[in-house]
Nucleic acid binder design. Sequence first.
DNA 1: TTGTCACATTGATATATATCAATATAACTG
DNA 2: CAGTTATATTGATATATATCAATGTGACAA
Lengths: 104, 104
Amino acid sequence: MESTETVKILKALADANRLHILELLGSGEQCACVLLGNLDLSQPTLSHHMKILCDAGLVTSRKAGKWIYYTRRAETLDRIGTCLQALGRSTTVNHPASDFRCRE
Amino acid sequence: MESTETVKILKALADANRLHILELLGSGEQCACVLLGNLDLSQPTLSHHMKILCDAGLVTSRKAGKWIYYTRRAETLDRIGTCLQALGRSTTVNHPASDFRCRE
DNA sequence: TTGTCACATTGATATATATCAATATAACTG
DNA sequence: CAGTTATATTGATATATATCAATGTGACAA
């Protein structure tokens, strides 16, 4: 996964309201108004959060008449989860920097 | 995992420099000055990032004389990774809010 | 067409965050 | 002790983000 993409996804996840939204999408596709009713947020704020989740690839949206239905993308959550687990296990070798100054 | 704790960890991870630091810690314990040499950051800024990583439980520190050695905590990365994967698979049932207004 | 409903966008604002220069602290060194 | 080194803290600043009120948009309904 590209590094800038990873940061984008993690930024999208690093918010209590957005995590709550992803939980609410656990029962499958949900209309925005249902999310709004469960979330103590104004409608524009919810819209803002949904845009961030969609842009990060964590949620997809489907328009049906006046409504928009949002769906959680398990694939993205799985990928980022695997990525973080891998980060905990990676054994990259790194070189002292060119301007390394530590005296021992 | 507590929700507020999860957000704290995700916020700590949602930064390119801090992800880079965790990668640099892949070769095991590293002195702060080695990290600094690899990171195009000022010393106070690195210190700031290390504090955030430590507070989130993603890194531990060990003082040895003038130096501080930082170690990545694979356990925390693994836990948050598993947590996100679980979020992608959860099938929570949620109720329409009390003030639900959607007309069908 | 006019009104209403669901959602998005805009504009403004307050808070959070990343950053660095300057300074403090703590430990070693002579 | 005084000087040096490694890191932390403080203070200031710029940018990012979360939030809401007001308004725009697009779709249905009468």
